[in-house]
Amino acid sequence: MHIYIFKRVLMMIPTLILISIVAFLVIQLPPGDFLTALTAGMEGRMTPEEIAYLRERYGLNDPMWLQYWKWISGIVFEGDFGYSFQWRRPVSELIWSHLGLTVLISFVTLLFVWAVSFPIGVLSAVRQYSFSDYFFTFIGFIGLATPNFLLALVLMYVGFKYFGQSVGGLFSPEYQNAPWSWAKLGDLMAHLWIPIIVIGTAKTAELIRVMRANLLDELHKPYVATARSKGLGEMRTLIKYPIRIALNPFISTIGWVLPSLVSGAVITAVVLNLPTTGPLLLGALRSQDMYLAGSFILMLSTLTVVGTLISDILLAWLDPRIRYQ
């Protein structure tokens, strides 16, 4: 098990390096360097010393690979993500709070997706071709076909039109800038369910299908018959054997569910005006504030890679066939 984890962590390193290269490319893609953006957007608002410092710090005259090295080593060794020209603050001051909320929303949504799709998938498989199976299959298709931002729009429209309130945001105005407290947490929870449903619906629909198919595969395996022939009750047979085994591929879905949840969180945040990475990233891209944008892309991707790592370890812990490979 320890060897497995070690190997798995080792395998993650090239992926992370690739991600950092892609993020760096995104930063470099817009024509000109940031001084161009600077002279265009913030004329006269920065002192020549500041500019000179930045030019030196990010080595704009250096070859590309050296620039990359300076950028990435700054992040890894000093936590220095560069400078946001739009906000005139170091990027590291901006991203952590927003990232934290993104992580929170993505994680809670993941739990929501699992908590909903698992029992429904089980029900659909055990009662195959029943009314509830058809019903959830139909709902699932609709859920898959609806872009999450559209769902957000519809929810907002319904809230606005019929309940006379805006459903956007994560906090009520009075808590917007208040320090953290239990009351603020409660307020967050009261707002959180809308983005969770919006972000999670499509993936819930998909995972219901995955769980249903997995379990249908397992239900007719001989070991289930063995369990029944031992005299085990139907419910205990299902839970201990096929459902338990169908859980493994279900856990492994985190690898592709998490990236799309993070994607969904970004776009939904724009619509629902959530104080997460979404609006900030979009704003940064629009104003070509590339260090901020690149850092977000780097951190969001790292987040999903770490999530995948956790799911792989979880899977190895659950499935001896992987553990003893």
């Binding site: 992926t15 991600i19 892609v22 995104v26 690898g255 592709w256 990236p259 799309s260 993070v262 994607s263 969904g264 970004v266 776009i267 990475t277 990233l281 977000f296 892309i297 969001l300 991707s301 999903t304 890679v305 995948t308």
Partner: peptide, 8 residues
């Protein structure tokens, strides 16, 4: 597959 597509 491991990168969130929308931000990229």
């Amino acid at each position: 597959k491991s990168i969130p597509t929308i931000p990229l």
